[in-house]
Amino acid sequence: MTGRLFPVIQTGAFIVLALVLCSLIFAAVGLSATGTLAAIIDGAFFRPNALNHILRWGLPLLITAVGVVISFRAGYFNIGAQGQFYLGAICAAFAAEWLRGSPAFVAVPACLLAGMAGGALWALWPALLRVKAGADEVITTMMGNFIAAQLLVHVTSGPLKDPSGSGQQASSRPVDAAWRISESSGSSPVIIILAGLVVMLGWWLVNRTSFGILSGLAGRNPVMVTWQGAKVQRIAVSAFVLSGALAGLAGSVELLGPNGRLASGFLPDHGFTAILIALVAGMSIVAAGFIALFFGALTSSGLWLPIMTGLPSAAIDIIHASIALFITAKAGALRALLTWFRR
């Protein structure tokens, strides 16, 4: 039992440590350390409607993060979640444009599937470059992020441009109100069910299928799996495509849900936060679910911070990154202490 509990306690301890350290850093730039910490926690968990906000930010992150976990477990450092997320949103927006006028029960699933296909395609080409030509997926997926961001600028100011739009930010025409799967500032049962399905399917895939065990082995030692006769290339491409499809799904959820339209440069940190979640979760799908909700809470608190404390909302990015840093570096001293404590 302690074997399972230990990583949970450890992760919790690192999160607390990161929060404390970050508030000390904020204190160093002249803010009240306890005040900021309190404001972050208050903004995350104790505002009216806090749960709705946590789910609004946490669930799309969760969907993307589950995909990232799947590719990381297989040993592929797909850091293109952001680009795959954008491609998902773009493809879903095109689908919405083409299906204009059709009923919601046709259009919504079609848009979600289009999003998954878009994200999957945006993961497929780095996967093929990796297995056929040995191109490092870190480089290709990162370049894919830039291309996807420019593609988003292009479609929102070109093919999908909202002619009535006059703001500084180019955006597409809003999706049909009947197709929206949530309000602008909250979550909804549809998104909760989708996220639940993603976690369940992800968990099943990782823990109860041949793919899960072989990809876990391949992630740690691809040579060994090759000598066992597994088709490592097929495992690699599957893992890439799955993770891209889930990021694309998150993109279409954001489009049909809270965003309601495609805006140039929207949610620029989504994919990277999902990568941090996957790192913190340490290859576990269930853990990724919880961490995603926690990071979602911090993100929603980030919107609150500038009003309450004068901290920019980017401060939340610092906290996210510090948590991931602590977890991945497994800060030696604390780890030793915890190990000692476990005895």
Partner: peptide, 22 residues
Amino acid sequence: SSPLWENWSAAQLVGGALLAPV
């Protein structure tokens, strides 16, 4: 770095479909 049983199981799994339940 993988568990012993996973190391042992690999030989049983490689012949089957990737989505085969285990």
